[in-house]
Each structure stands twice: as C-alpha cells, then as structure tokens.
C-alpha cells in the first residue's frame, strides 16, 4: 500500500489529509489514521472481527460515513480498529472486515476525544497523481 496522512490544524478542532494511490488504500489509510488519533496501541491486535457495509451519495459522503462508523465503533462499542480489509469498494458503497481491540484505557493510550466526523470542508478527490481525502473532526 502506498498511502500517507498528515494532520490539518484547525482552531478548535482537528483534521487530516490522506493521500493514496487508489481508493482502497485511501479508505484503509483514513480508517487506520482515525484509529491512531483515537488511541495508541503497542500490543498485537486482539482480533475481534466485525464486518461493516455502508453507503454514500458519492465518494466524499461515503468517506464521511465510513469514518463515522469507525468512530461509532470506538465511542459506542469500545472497539478500536487495528486492521482493515476492504472487501468491496465503489463510489457509493463500501464493505470491509475489521479486526479490533476492546478499548481499555489501561492498555491503550487514549488520544483527544473525537466527538464527530464533520462534513465541514470534507472532500475526496483524485487526479493523475492519486487520491486525496480531507476530513475535519469535531473535538
């Protein structure tokens, strides 16, 4: 996989810009980047597997919905995503298998509380150089 992300400074909140060669790498890297912001883990993945299937109106909406789902798994189900396998991906639909840890504040170093993935300035774009996603989180 050839992908990378950098954090975007925002006065009250925070965001990230992810770049990748293709959409599968983009969605994988964006998901893992979000997980890395939520909490740091140094031990091997516990391997609690779950599967998600999501839809969106376009690539941007799909990316927001994807990250919203991963954030919900963390905030609502205490599941920290460690590994992602994209099973199916097109502009309006994603299916993925996730391997997760049960979030434990004693074993995982929690990052800042991310309340939500916003639509504010959200964008997925692509050109000959590759794919880019820009997302702002509400902290």
């Amino acid at each position: 996989m050839n992908a990378a992300y950098r954090l975007i400074a925002h006065t009250a909140d925070a965001g990230m810009q992810v770049t990748a060669a293709d959409p599968r790498s983009l969605f994988t890297e964006a998901g893992l980047a979000l997980a890395g912001l939520l909490a740091a883990a140094t031990h091997p993945c516990e391997g609690r597997v779950c599967q998600v299937a999501l839809e969106g109106a376009d690539w941007t909406d799909l990316m927001v919905n994807w990250l919203r789902e991963l954030l919900y798994l963390f905030n609502g189900r205490e599941r920290l995503v460690r590994e992602i396998v994209i099973l199916h991906l097109e502009a309006r639909r994603i299916e993925a298998r996730l391997a997760c840890d049960h979030f434990d504040p004693c074993r995982h170093a929690a990052g800042p509380e991310i309340k939500a993935v916003t639509y504010h300035q959200a964008r997925v774009s692509h050109d000959t150089a590759g794919w880019t996603a820009r997302i702002i989180f509400d902290l």
Binding site: A57, N65, A116, Y119, H120
Partner: peptide
C-alpha cells in the same frame, strides 16, 4: 456526552440526505 454527539450526528446525516428536497442551496454541507 456521547448521547448528544450521536443525536447531532444522526440528524445531520438525515438532514443532509433530505435537504435537496427543500430546494435549499447550502454553502457548506455542515
């Protein structure tokens, strides 16, 4: 807490899907 965040998140998504029906042009989807 998480209750309020989730309420906002759920309704923003639903309103985002339906806003075009009202004919409102949004400068920012948020």
């Amino acid at each position: 807490r998480g209750f309020g965040y989730q309420v906002c998140d759920d309704f923003l998504a639903e309103m985002g899907r339906q806003v075009h029906q009202t004919g409102v042009e949004l400068p920012d989807r948020q």
